[in-house]
């Protein structure tokens, strides 16, 4: 096999797209609850979390365009890329089938990014470290929110526990991809810029298992794990999401408030 030399800036660009896209797509998904959440207070909570995610996406994507300076802006990346150019995890694009799906999706993601960004905040790239450190504070609160809901829905009524168990069953197949790593990561890990997500997998498993068991929920067995998001191969849901997210920018390119 031929060993290709990977340019650091290009690797970092790709890496930042992943981090940015995870947050952008998840933030958009959460924003879909605006005006529809089960209670006014929850509506505001989800909108707050959505804004935090979109803020993080903005920071990562801005850093991405600064890294390679290809004349594009962070808005171009958000609104003028097609489905196959998005590098987000399949987990974050999964639809809000019900409130339980939203909470489980968020919980799986929060547990990961809390530990992952803690490590990234030690990155040798100071800007990446700074964005990650700021995000850790926000995510600490997101996790508190999603974890409390898992416990309450799991230990709530028969209906709430059935619904949240369904969400766990359906979303479990996307949890392995969270720990995806390829030569892009390896190149950046070598430089002390990136961090190997597999090294925190046991922390993720520990908190997820402990929380689900406290909520009297079961982890499904023998699940076929899905992946592809990091290569731009997405589930059907992403196309619908992008259509909605991008239509204004694409219908009126260059429009200003």
């Amino acid at each position: 096999m031929q060993k290709t030399i990977i340019n650091i800036d290009e690797a970092l660009y790709e890496y930042l797209l992943r981090l940015g896209d995870d947050n952008l797509i998840l933030g958009h998904r959460l924003s879909e609850w605006c005006g529809h959440a089960p209670a006014l207070e929850e509506d505001i909570a989800l909108a707050n979390i959505a804004l935090d995610c979109i803020g993080q996406a903005n920071a990562f994507l801005t850093l991405a365009v600064q890294t390679i300076n290809n004349g594009r802006t962070e808005d171009d990346l958000a609104f003028f890329r097609n489905e196959t150019e998005f590098k987000n995890l399949l987990l974050v694009e999964q639809p809000d089938t019900d409130f339980g799906y939203t909470i489980v999706r968020q919980f799986f993601y929060d547990v990961f990014v809390l530990h992952f960004y803690q490590e990234l905040s030690k990155s040798r790239n100071e800007q990446l470290a700074g964005i990650s450190a700021k995000a850790v504070k926000e995510i600490t609160y997101h996790l508190r929110h999603s974890r409390q809901w898992i416990l309450r829905l799991g230990g709530g009524t028969e209906e709430s526990s059935t619904r949240i168990q369904n969400a766990v069953n359906d979303l479990w197949c996307f949890t392995d991809e969270i720990f995806f790593k390829n030569e892009i990561d390896d190149r950046l890990i070598e430089e002390g810029i990136a961090f190997d997500p597999r090294l925190i997998k046991h922390k993720w498993e520990e908190l997820v298992e402990q929380t689900l068991s406290e909520a009297e929920l079961k982890i499904p067995e023998n699940v076929f794990m899905k992946s592809g998001g990091r290569y731009g191969r997405h589930t059907e849901s992403l196309g619908h999401l992008l259509a909605e997210m991008q239509i204004v920018a694409r219908s009126y390119p260059g429009a200003k408030w």
Binding site: A39, L40, E41, I44, A45, Y141, R144, H145, R152
Partner: peptide, 20 residues
Amino acid sequence: NVHAPDAELALQNARDVYSR
């Protein structure tokens, strides 16, 4: 004031509504 099922979620809701 806020609506909440218990004290912990009341604190979270209060944080979201009154300390944004």
